[in-house]
Design a binder for these strands. Sequence first.
DNA 1: CGGCAAACCTGCGAGC
DNA 2: TGCTCGCAGGTTTGCC
Length: 277
Amino acid sequence: MPELPEVETTRLGLLPHMQGQHIQNVLLRRDNLRLPFGKDFKAQLNGRDIKTLHRRGKYFWADLGNQNALMMHLGMSGSFRIEDQRMKADEYQKHDHAILSLSNDKQIIYNDPRRFGFMLYIEDVERYEPFLRMGPEPLSNHFSGPVLHTALHKKNTAIKIALLDQSVVSGLGNIYVCEALYITRIDPRRPAKTLSLEECEALSTAIKQVLERAIKAGGSTLKDHQQVDGELGYFQHQFNVYDRAGQPCQACNNPSHLIERIVQGGRSTFFCPKHQK
DNA sequence: CGGCAAACCTGCGAGC
DNA sequence: TGCTCGCAGGTTTGCC
């Protein structure tokens, strides 16, 4: 799924339906996703008020007050949708795993074919373990060229791999890393520590730009991602390199310069070896 | 610590 | 039609 723009799109779509409501019922159609919901999950959520929804990297959560939270992660194939009507047992779709019924009579339905996502009740969101080692929010002022340069300057690993490391910068995944490196003409295979401060400035700017544009487009819809209202994101139509192996590099102005697919860290990287140095 | 492979799952498209 | 294979937006674990 779901990299930062898809998570943010989901959060923004759910917000008007969930903010200020309270949870009247929790229905679980299985007892675990990637992680177990937890033995007391239903009791911990029933009757609780949802103050608002927050996001950090690819995680988002319902703020239940007093630092308590319903933490959510979409994994690779998770999505939410809203239903206005109470659903009968035979009306659920395949892979509808968790349903929250709210005081506004809306049902918030989590669907996740691969079940790499999760929902957890968290007592103290400030001490949630994944957040403690998470790098800066890329769209905040905490992320900049100098910050990125410092984070990378000892890393021998390829810049592509380093940017996927959520402790360097949070929220990036395979698509937006490929796109940001293409925009800045940086070869994804270069050791991270070889990037100059100027390159890190350009890269941090490109990361912000590509994420902001993707959020405006409602995220990217490959197979699974859809917005809460069922609309599909359309940023995939603006990809320069992702999933474009064999197609001409648009920036090279030479039809024989083709986008290549290589494997780094077991995952596909798309880039133009002529354009990116 | 670094680097890499495998694990967790289902679905889809390509090729035979 | 149906089989197998490889691939998919993420994260964690375990091994060398």
